[in-house]
Design a protein around this nucleic acid. Structure first.
Lengths: 158, 158
DNA sequence: CAAAATTCATTCGTATGCAAATGATATCAA
DNA sequence: TTGATATCATTTGCATACGAATGAATTTTG
């Protein structure tokens, strides 16, 4: 596939000539996955700067429990998009800090019920305003209109 | 703050009445960070379904090395957005599989140079078409125009 | 030049994140 | 009812991801 055989569309030709023969111009920094990973990293960093003593997954668990009340560990995992193994670790750590408490389901003995403690409730209610600020700061590079568009499209991808 | 005191904008009133008094309507599933995390998860799953024997970070390292040639481990980390500790693990595993080789920088003895092996080069060149398919599948829920908009806005956030 | 500050790499500790295997319990179906 | 399935939780193993501490080498600066 020699370049000489290529008929002449100027921009394309210039583009091709600017690159190495074997490389058809794959640029990592233009790939969704790579940018998605970086955007997520940036968000996590912003989160950590505002809420230092809780991770985003831990916050998600508390926020969801605050929203819906007691549920099973598994159900909670589904709601906050974590598999069973991951959610267990998160809940274990929240339990160790006294933010959630566990109990057995009376009827279905397989289920482990998770609920906020008073301390957990106090914590999440205190943190929610900070979480709003985190969302705001994460979206700060975009105008209000851009942010709305972005959220709409991002939701379609997730 | 009784609801009765609220003057009547219909939509707002209905919205407020649908919620608990103390809860000002914080919904995890509407937060950028949460959706960003889910979108990233989905992408990683798509990646794994197309390229089973390499992770996205490992692929990123190979792709970048293919793009720019030999560099120091640290510099590579900067280019693919990984801190020093993370990049070391990734490179260690690629080395164990014979996809990259390491050498000492002649002048600056602190630096560890990383380069593709012949096998690594063969691998990345074989995988790049699959990576394009992964990008395509990740963006599949969006129209071409939406995808372009999304990429533009995402890049601003990352 | 010599001390101070930086840079590069490594190591340790902690926290996701997921696949796969396992055990206990529930539900479904023949 | 019992045998097959499915669900819930746990555990193990592996792979990011990052802060913090450390040591070696280089660069900056007084």
């Amino acid at each position: 596939m020699g370049r000489a055989e290529m008929s002449g569309e100027d921009n394309l030709l210039r583009l091709v000539e600017a690159e190495e023969p074997d490389e058809n111009g794959y640029h990592l920094q233009d790939q969704v996955g790579f940018i998605l990973r970086k955007a997520h990293q940036r968000h996590v960093a912003i989160f950590a700067s505002q809420i230092g003593d809780l991770t985003p997954p831990q916050f998600a668990a508390l926020a969801k429990l605050h929203d819906i009340g007691e549920t099973s560990q598994n159900q909670l995992g589904t709601l906050i998009a974590m598999d069973a193994a991951t959610v267990k670790g998160v809940i274990d750590r929240l339990k160790a800090r006294g933010l959630v408490e566990l109990s057995k389901h009376e009827v279905d003995k397989r289920r482990l019920l998770v609920n906020l403690t008073a301390q957990g409730r106090e914590a999440i209610e205190r943190l929610i305003p900070l979480a709003r600020a985190i969302t705001e700061e994460t979206l700060a590079p975009l105008s209000a209109k851009e942010a709305a568009t972005f959220m709409r499209l991002l939701a379609k991808l997730a």
